[in-house]
Simulated scan of single mutants.
Amino acid sequence: MRCLIWKVPLLAFRWSEVEKTSDDAGTVEIQQADGVPGTAVITATDKYGVSKTYTINFTETTSAYAGDMQWMVNECGYSTTKIDRSIDGNPLKLTVDGKEKTFAKGIGTHATSRIVIDISGKGYERFQAMVGVDREQIWQHDCQLGIPRLL
């Protein structure tokens, strides 16, 4: 059985402070974004003076995908859970309204699986999911699908 596709509206950010591990470890400079939309710039310099700069652009969105969020629990009954791919590493495909539909975003997992994402206190107003058996496996098994629930 292949269960997939969770979509959660709204996106929350968590920003962490960087802790220096020793006096000769180098430096990290962070220029915070002024807001959303905005840009943050992180410059890391090692103890030899070699620097690398990372730019992060923040934009507003009305949705976030479960595959892009931090998971509290990821238990996959066979192989490993895949982000935006089927359990076999192929594009995610479901039958929707009698026709095959390919999804760019989603979660490919195998029975018996459990994925837990803590969305409490993040301002989410609803949870929307499309769950099904991937087309590459539809002919192999009878199955029962569990609908995600909010704890």
Score class of each variant (00 low, 15 high):
7 K>I: 13
7 K>E: 15
7 K>R: 12
7 K>G: 11
7 K>H: 10
8 V>R: 01
8 V>G: 02
8 V>D: 09
8 V>C: 05
8 V>W: 00
9 P>L: 05
9 P>M: 01
10 L>I: 07
10 L>V: 11
11 L>F: 03
12 A>W: 10
12 A>D: 13
13 F>V: 13
13 F>C: 00
13 F>A: 08
13 F>E: 11
14 R>F: 09
14 R>A: 13
14 R>N: 12
14 R>M: 04
14 R>S: 13
15 W>Q: 06
15 W>R: 10
15 W>V: 13
15 W>N: 08
15 W>P: 00
17 E>W: 01
17 E>Y: 05
17 E>C: 00
17 E>G: 11
17 E>H: 08
17 E>F: 02
18 V>A: 15
18 V>I: 15
18 V>R: 03
18 V>P: 01
18 V>C: 04
19 E>C: 00
19 E>W: 01
19 E>H: 07
20 K>R: 13
20 K>I: 08
20 K>S: 14
20 K>H: 02
21 T>M: 05
21 T>K: 10
21 T>I: 15
22 S>I: 02
22 S>L: 01
22 S>D: 13
23 D>K: 07
23 D>R: 04
23 D>I: 08
23 D>N: 11
24 D>I: 10
24 D>A: 10
24 D>K: 09
25 A>C: 11
26 G>C: 08
26 G>R: 07
26 G>E: 08
26 G>L: 08
27 T>N: 10
27 T>L: 02
27 T>Q: 09
27 T>F: 03
27 T>Y: 03
27 T>V: 09
27 T>G: 01
28 V>C: 13
28 V>R: 02
28 V>N: 05
28 V>A: 12
28 V>F: 06
28 V>W: 06
28 V>T: 14
28 V>G: 04
29 E>N: 11
29 E>T: 14
29 E>H: 07
29 E>R: 07
30 I>Y: 15
30 I>K: 08
30 I>F: 14
31 Q>F: 05
31 Q>P: 00
31 Q>S: 13
31 Q>T: 15
31 Q>L: 11
31 Q>G: 00
31 Q>Y: 05
31 Q>E: 15
32 Q>V: 01
32 Q>I: 00
32 Q>M: 10
33 A>I: 03
34 D>A: 14
34 D>M: 03
34 D>I: 01
34 D>H: 00
34 D>P: 02
35 G>N: 06
35 G>P: 05
36 V>P: 02
36 V>M: 03
36 V>A: 06
36 V>H: 03
36 V>R: 00
37 P>R: 03
38 G>Q: 07
38 G>Y: 09
38 G>V: 10
38 G>D: 10
38 G>A: 06
38 G>K: 05
39 T>L: 07
39 T>W: 03
40 A>S: 15
